[in-house]
Design a protein around this nucleic acid. Structure first.
Length: 269
DNA sequence: ATGGTAGTCGCACTA
C-alpha cells in the first residue's frame, strides 16, 4: 500500500484554506499534518477540507496561537493528544492509520523566543523542556517498539545540521540552530532510534530548507532559509520510505505561509 | 547593530 504523507506549518488555516485546497489538489497526499492552525477546534474549516476529499479530520486547537490538525483521505483513528511539559498549549496530536501498525504524531515544538538563554528567556527554557518531555515519552518502553511503527513529523523549530541553515556560523547563537537545541534534538532522535527521512534523500553537505522568513525583502534572492520541519520514522519503517519532496514553490504562492510543505512517500506492507 | 513581516481573542503577544 502506498501512503503519501505531507507536513505543513500553515500559519493560520482559516486565512490560508485556499492554499491548503490547492496543495491537496496538486499533490494529492493521503495524510496532511498541519501546524499553527491558530484556531479552536470549532473554527477549523471542516467543510472545505471534507469537500477536498479529506473526511478524516483530527484537530487540537486553541484560540489565536499554535494548534495542530491531521487530515486524511484514508481512515484514521484518534490516538490522543499529549500535553508535553504541561503548558496546556495545543502542540501535539496522534492518530493511527486504520488497519496498519502505524501511528502518526503531528507536533509543533515551541519556537523559543529570541534570546537563547533560559535564564533570561523562559520561552527558550520551555522549548528545551518540551523537547526533553518528548524524549522521555518516546523513550519509555513500548512507545516505539517493533510492534507498532511511529512517524513523528511537524514543525520542530530546530535546524540541526550545518547545512540546514544558510549560514552555520552566523546562526550558532540564533534560536533554532544553537548547540544546546541541537543536542536536545539529537537526544530526542536517539530516544526511539528515529530516522531522518529528509536527509536520507539529500546529502548532509547540501543545503535543505523548509522555512524562509517573512522579513526578507525577497526570500528567493536572499535565500536565507532554515530546515525547521521534519519527518522522522522508527527503524521498522525506514525501508518503506520511497521518496521525499520539499515543495519550495509554495513559498511563492499568493499570501504564503513562511513554511513550505514536505512530502514523504511510503510503501507499506 | 538593527530591523525587517505576518497573524490573532490585535492596541500585545507569538512567530
Amino acid at each position: 500500500m502506498k501512503l503519501r504523507l505531507a507536513t505543513w506549518n500553515i500559519n493560520s488555516v482559516r486565512l490560508r484554506i485556499g492554499l491548503v485546497e490547492r496543495f491537496l489538489k496538486e499533490f494529492e497526499p493521503d495524510i496532511l499534518c498541519l501546524q499553527e492552525i491558530k484556531c479552536k477546534e470549532e473554527f477549523f474549516p471542516y467543510d472545505a477540507v471534507r469537500d477536498a476529499g479529506y473526511p478524516h479530520i483530527h484537530v487540537k486547537g486553541q484560540a489565536g496561537y499554535h494548534g495542530v490538525a491531521t487530515v486524511s483521505r484514508i481512515p484514521l483513528t484518534a490516538n490522543g493528544t499529549e500535553n508535553f511539559c504541561g503548558t496546556g498549549e495545543a502542540r501535539h496530536i496522534a492518530a493511527i492509520v486504520d488497519g496498519k501498525p502505524l501511528i502518526i504524531h503531528n507536533v509543533y515544538i515551541p519556537a523559543g523566543g529570541d534570546i537563547p538563554d533560559p535564564e533570561v528567556n523562559p520561552k527558550f527554557g520551555q522549548k528545551l523542556a518540551y523537547v526533553r518531555a518528548l524524549t522521555d515519552w518516546f523513550g519509555e518502553s513500548g512507545k516505539a517498539d517493533s510492534e507498532s511503527h511511529h512517524l513523528l513529523t511537524g514543525d520542530f523549530n530546530i535546524a540541526p545540521c550545518e547545512h540546514d541553515v544558510w549560514s552555520h556560523k552566523q546562526l550558532l547563537n540564533v534560536v533554532s540552530h544553537t548547540p544546546v537545541e541541537v543536542e536536545h534534538l539529537m537526544a530526542l532522535k536517539h530516544s526511539a532510534n528515529w530516522h531522518d527521512t529528509m536527509r536520507a534523500f539529500v546529502p548532509e553537505e547540501e543545503k535543505l530548507y523548509t522555512w524562509w522568513s517573512y522579513r526578507a525583502r525577497d526570500w528567493r534572492v536572499s535565500n536565507r532559509g532554515r530546515r525547521l520541519d521534519h519527518v522522522w520514522v522508527t527503524p521498522g519503517l525506514e525501508s518503506s520510505v520511497r521518496a521525499m519532496q520539499v515543495i519550495t514553490e509554495a513559498r511563492g504562492w499568493e499570501k504564503p505561509s513562511d513554511h513550505v510543505p514536505v512530502i514523504v512517500d511510503l510503501e507499506l506492507d
